[in-house]
């Protein structure tokens, strides 16, 4: 007669690992009482670790944001002894009807467009060319190109002001031009973006170099065995694989162009000549801290906050689409 061999069940006692194993563990009741407290503690502890950072975020980012949104519905001149007068949507209405705001948006777009070659195109070229440089030479090279980023914007503005002086400035003497760089409309815009671009170039090159270094070297080796020329390999592999990095740089440029140019504008042109270098950030600042129209500046701030949120969301989405995880 055949008897089936039963499959092992959970009830089947496992053989003791060695002779003389210990007695059964502590009682069940005792364990469950302690475990409730432990579970609660386990739930709270991560938040305790997070609390300082969250606190900072709330105090320094979210509270001002809410306050700004709040002020945008008032008319107030920032002086503590003056009352803030409720205005309803009036500030927003003014914002959309004043030509100043629209023009400064256009100038902001122009500045971003002029900065992109410095943060995308030149860094790609420099990154690809320096990818071949190895060892100490590479470090020296990157340090050289990164150095302008470390110069305080106001200091570099002062030096550039000196170099751009009509007549005696080194730029005009070298080029033979008679341009009054900081006091003519188009040259002023070009100067501001040029100096900002010069400062940001090193940062962008560093980001691109990091992006290139993160691309698995096997791909270009495989491509070369597959018969691809260097240019084909760059166009078909390196650039597509670098695209998330490039989107990140576009995002940085779009969102931070105003921040980068602000100290230069304030030092060199104060938004002039004839508002030619007034971008929205500078306009905001002028409304708030020159005209002391806090409500209006706040309204503009809120609008641009949402505008840039949309742009950023789109670019982040694009970046996710372009990222290829491989393992």
């Amino acid at each position: 007669m055949f008897v089936e061999v039963a499959p092992p069940t959970q009830l089947a006692p496992a053989p003791p690992p060695s002779a003389g194993a210990g007695t059964p563990g502590p009682s069940h009741a005792r364990r469950s009482a302690g475990s409730l407290a432990r579970m609660l503690g386990r739930g709270v502890i991560p938040y305790l670790y997070l609390a300082p950072a969250l606190g900072m975020l709330v105090v320094w980012i979210y509270r001002p944001l809410v306050q700004t949104a709040n002020y945008s519905f008032y008319s107030w001149n920032l002086s503590p002894d003056q009352p803030a007068i409720p205005q309803g949507w009036h500030n927003y209405h003014r914002l959309f009807t004043l030509p100043e705001a629209g023009n400064s948006v256009l100038r902001t777009v122009a500045m971003i467009a002029l900065l992109l070659p410095f943060t995308i195109i030149i860094p790609i070229i420099v990154g690809l060319l320096t990818a071949e440089v190895r060892g100490r030479a590479r470090t020296v090279y990157q340090a050289l190109i990164f150095a302008p980023f470390l110069v305080a914007p106001v200091a570099s503005a002062a030096v550039w002001q000196w170099m751009l002086t009509p007549g005696s400035g080194i730029v005009n003497r070298a080029t033979g031009l008679k341009t009054n760089w900081l006091h003519e409309r188009l040259p002023a815009l070009l100067s501001i973006t040029g100096i900002a671009g010069w400062q940001m170039l090193g940062f962008a090159v560093l980001v691109v170099s990091a992006g290139l270094a993160s691309i698995n070297g096997d791909y270009s080796e495989a491509a070369s065995v597959d018969g691809a020329s260097r240019w084909q390999s760059t166009r078909w592999l390196t650039l597509p694989l670098l695209s998330p990095t490039l989107v990140f740089l576009v995002l940085t440029t779009v969102l931070l162009a105003g921040t980068w140019t602000f100290p230069l504008i304030d030092t060199l042109t104060q938004g002039g000549p004839v508002s030619a270098t007034t971008n929205i950030y500078y306009l905001l600042w002028q409304y708030g801290f020159k005209s002391f129209d806090a409500g209006f500046a706040a309204a503009a701030g809120v609008i641009f906050f949402f505008g840039f949120t949309l742009v950023a969301a789109f670019l982040v989405w694009l970046s996710d689409r372009l990222t290829f995880h491989d393992n």
């Binding site: 080796e221 495989a222 691809a228 597509p240 491989d326």
Partner: peptide, 20 residues
């Protein structure tokens, strides 16, 4: 002669498939 002029094909340990 560089790799692409040698008429050889190679399979890499990581496969090196172009991820995109």
């Amino acid at each position: 002669i560089p790799a692409r002029g040698r008429d050889l094909a190679m399979v890499f340990q990581s496969y090196a498939l172009y991820p995109h």
